[in-house]
Design a protein around this nucleic acid. Structure first.
Length: 820
RNA sequence: GCGGGCGUGGCGGAAUGGUAGACGCGCAGGAUUUAGGAUCCUGUGGGCUAAGUCCCGUGGAGGUUCAAGUCCUCUCGCCCGCACCA
């Protein structure tokens, strides 16, 4: 006799969760063998505390898909790890006196147990924690490999320095303009720091995008970030007032065709040449003040600020190579040291930013490209004319048509410049080398020793890891250096080459370094001889499906692509791209604001799980919005989260708890096949919210019939639901008396002919507006449809006895009769 | 400022250029009871109405099309990124 129990998820969810862990239910071997492999992973989390509902969204989407693919017959590797170095651990240490390592690991423990409670199908044996020496030693190994190949080098770069706390400040720590701890205005200090030569890979990073199944918007953002532009390098000569010396000064321009319109020359404010030419003159004080202001600004403020006039006249002239003209030299904030040569020729008539600057300082404007059919006069212009046109006042090129979008005319100017020795073709990139030095404690020590005799000496591989010392101060240093500099024991080391006393590098690596290769470590997480075994990576790599937010569109995703190409060059991997398919899930916010542990603005996952169960949390978050869309939890009533899904799962439980052994009747069978077809199509398209909606329809169909649901139909439903709600489906599956896990079952198939409806609604439109509807067989012909439409009384009333102008039939759904 | 997105009922959202609002929440009326985290039935975009397969309706303004939430142009609003948060 059938028993009846209420849906009490807590009774069985934790039992199954523990079973899956203890039986390593989702472990996969190093070699998937003959099975089709699928490497599925999510961007690993920063362990800031317990999981919040934003995490639940990200990881549930990926887990549901991983479970679906497993049921589709793939051998799925689904690993998890923790991006465990970083600023918040140090902040917590400074504020609360807990060691970053301790703080981080306790957060990891909380997150791991929430992952387990949520039933995520991870292979726990592959877990990676980036702050542990068995991981970061390989960061050091990779860094040294890059160093040996000339891809890691040192150069000067400014940092923000708090003179009170005596520490380098991250941008986030001065988001209010002052130091987050003491409120002091930061100073700018120049430090010698480590860079990676990612620009060597710019072209490959661009070219290889074509093989990626990523959203076009992400690829576009990457393209724009790399910012390849074709143009010319043109050599101007610079003459400083009161000096006879003339220096060559190249500039990069995408519009060499407008050279004849250059009316001034601009150096980046921080260009050393600018400082040099005012040094010892009456302009020096004013200039120093100006540069100081500019350097305090972010790049965004500099380039995008409202004030388009910030600049200062320098005591020099530049000589235009195409006409020998002497033009004034300025320093301005809108020219960046890091782009091109740090100097530009300014053509106000044909560049908007130059135009704004020229107008602000009464610098002459000269039109040298006349747009077709126009005759622009400089003093009447209200904006620059950056488009196509015909060259004017441009020497022998006067009359030449130029088009920046096709390079028409421009290539001819470049060829001429080369011939004349005045310039040459050049491709410039917006992308800059990657600054990886951080003046922080909680990161990977950079494995270099500085020796007075031998210079930059790599720590020998056999001495890795350079262990991060256990020390208690993470803040103040005497000068703008890393807190590790306070640790004498760490700093002093013999030179590996000559054995004389030497000093270690005290900077640590940017945490983006850690996340640039962790997916490879998942393939071989315990290797203590190498970062990974190439044979193992060859079996599982590259990642087939990567899940993560759009906020990583450029930096992380470009850095990981760069590392992969570097490993390819080393012969360690046999693929060029790390992530074949990328899925960008939406952002989850609450009351319009991003959830953040540090501000306490979070909806913690465990609260929802405690109250309604893990299946409810999963189902709710997947049903609430399409996976790629942002979702904002309402400001009030968030405590009700999960109730909606819980009551539906309770309904599923009531309807399917008891099943019958009768065969599935035809009409129900047809509905089941239709549901399988629809849900499968949605799953293939990551349409988890609509897939759940279609499961709801099937449950409603089950409910409408009287008596218990036939077991065969119920089991099909459970398999459809299994990726979304793994616990209730496993529980009912076992209650039906099945052996083994439902999650090892194959995804149900459907029969197209059974899935078909016997009747469909045909809509009859007149001039595109619905006027009538009739039921037709799905294989109705166009002729039959037309006849039905013309027979409609409704249509006849619009025709008034006339013939229709046109009849359009879309079998079997729609006929449109065009009248009058 | 530059680059990339998104705008549909009271709410989350659904719609290969082809019935706008699937599915669900909420709300209203009702039923029932083992009073539960109940359950079930009916209704639910707006307007006018005696009645309508009547009119209006997908941020706004134009356009293309037999047909536009969907395609095009312009525009407004919001979100993400912009190189030391990750």
């Amino acid at each position: 006799m059938a028993t009846s129990e209420r849906y009490e998820p807590h009774d069985f969810e934790q039992r199954w969760a523990q079973t899956w862990v203890s039986e390593a239910a989702y472990a996969v071997p190093d070699n998937p063998g003959g099975r089709r492999k699928r490497f599925v992973m999510e961007m690993f989390p920063y362990p800031s505390g317990d999981l919040h509902m934003g995490h639940v969204e990200n990881y549930t989407i990926a887990d549901a898909m991983a479970r679906y693919w497993r049921m589709r017959g793939f051998m799925v590797m689904h690993p998890m790890g923790y991006d465990a170095f970083g600023l918040p651990a140090e902040n917590a240490a400074i504020k609360r006196g807990v060691h970053p390592h301790e703080w981080t690991l306790s957060n990891i423990d909380k997150m791991r147990s929430s992952f387990i409670r949520l039933g995520y199908s991870y292979d726990w044996a592959r877990e990676v924690i980036s702050c542990e020496p068995d991981y970061y030693r390989w960061n050091q190994w990779i860094f040294l490999q890059m160093f040996q190949r000339g891809l890691a080098y040192r150069s000067t770069s400014p940092v923000n320095w708090c003179p009170v706390d005596k520490t380098v400040l991250a941008k986030e720590q001065i988001s209010t303009g002052v130091c987050w701890r003491c409120g002091t205005e930061p100073e700018i200090r120049d430090l010698t720091q480590w860079f990676l030569k990612i620009t060597d890979y710019s072209d490959r990073l661009l070219d290889d995008m074509q093989g990626l199944e990523w959203a076009e918007s992400i690829l576009t953002q990457q393209r724009n970030w790399i910012g390849r532009s074709e143009g010319a390098e043109v050599v101007f000569k610079l003459k400083v007032d009161g000096s006879d010396e003339v220096h060559d000064f190249p500039v990069f321009t995408t519009r060499p065709d407008t050279l004849w319109g250059a009316t001034f020359f601009v150096l980046a404010a921080e260009h050393p040449a600018a400082a040099e030419m005012v040094s010892g003159t009456e302009h020096e004080a004013e200039f120093t003040k100006f540069v100081d202001e500019v350097r305090r600004q972010s790049e965004m403020e500099r380039v995008g600020g409202k004030d388009k006039s910030r600049g200062m006249r320098l005591p020099a002239v530049a000589i235009n190579p195409v006409n020998g003209e002497e033009i004034p030299v300025w320093a301005a904030d809108y020219v960046l040291m890091g782009y091109g040569t740090g100097a530009i020729m300014a053509v106000p008539a044909h560049d908007q930013r130059d135009f704004d600057f020229a107008r602000a300082h009464d610098i002459p404007i000269r039109v040298v490209v006349q747009p077709e059919g126009q005759s622009l006069a400089a003093d009447e212009m209200t904006e620059a004319a950056a488009g196509t046109g015909v060259l004017a006042e441009s020497g022998e090129f006067t009359g030449t048509k130029v088009d920046p979008s096709t390079q028409e005319g421009i290539v001819d100017v470049i060829a001429w410049l080369s011939e004349q020795g005045k310039g040459k073709r050049r491709i410039n990139y917006r992308q800059r080398d990657w600054l990886v030095s951080r003046q922080r404690y909680w990161g990977t020590p950079i494995p270099i020793i500085f020796c007075d005799s031998c210079g930059e000496v790599p720590v020998p591989y056999e001495d890795l890891p350079v262990q991060l010392p256990e020390q208690a101060d993470y803040g103040a240093t005497e000068d703008a250096v890393s807190p590790l500099a306070n640790n004498e024991e760490f700093v002093n080391a013999p030179c590996p080459k000559c054995a004389k006393p030497a000093k270690r590098e005290t900077d640590t690596l940017d945490t983006f370094f850690d996340s640039s290769w962790y997916f490879l470590r998942y393939c071989d997480p315990k290797n203590d001889k190498h970062p990974f075994n190439p044979g193992k990576v060859a079996k599982w790599g590259p990642v087939d499906n990567y899940f993560g937010g759009v906020e990583h569109a450029v930096m992380h995703l470009i850095y990981a692509r760069f590392f992969t190409k570097f490993f390819k060059d080393m012969g360690l991997v046999d693929f060029d791209e790390p992530f074949m398919r990328l899925f960008n899930q939406g952002h989850v916010s609450w009351a319009g604001k991003e959830m953040s542990k540090s501000t306490g603005h979070v909806i913690e996952a465990s609260a929802t799980i405690d109250e309604y169960g893990a299946d409810s949390a999963r189902t709710f978050i997947l049903f609430s919005s399409p996976p790629e869309a942002d979702y904002d939890f309402p400001a009030d009533g968030y405590g009700e989260i999960g109730r909606v899904a819980h009551s539906w799962l309770a309904r599923v439980w009531r309807i399917l708890e008891n099943v019958s052994d009768e065969p599935v009747p035809d009409d129900l069978n047809s509905q089941v096949h239709r549901s399988v077809k629809a849900v499968t199509a949605d799953m293939e398209d990551f349409g988890l919210n609509t897939a759940i909606a279609k499961m709801m329809e099937l449950i409603n169909a089950f409910y409408k019939r009287s008596g218990p649901v036939p077991r065969a139909a119920a089991e099909v439903f459970l398999k459809l639901l299994a990726p979304v709600a793994p616990f209730i489906t496993e529980e009912l599956w076992h209650r039906y008396g099945n052996e083994g896990s439902i999650h090892q079952q194959r995804w149900p198939t459907y029969d197209e002919s059974l899935a078909e409806l016997s009747k469909v609604t045909m809509v009859i439109q007149v001039n595109g507006k619905v006027r009538d509807k009739v039921e037709v067989a799905p294989d109705v012909t166009k002729e039959q449809m037309q006849q039905l439409a013309l027979d409609s009384e409704k249509v006849k009333s619009y025709l008034n006895g006339n013939d229709p102008l046109k009849v359009i039939s879309v079998p079997p759904k729609l006929v449109n009769v065009v009248v009058k």
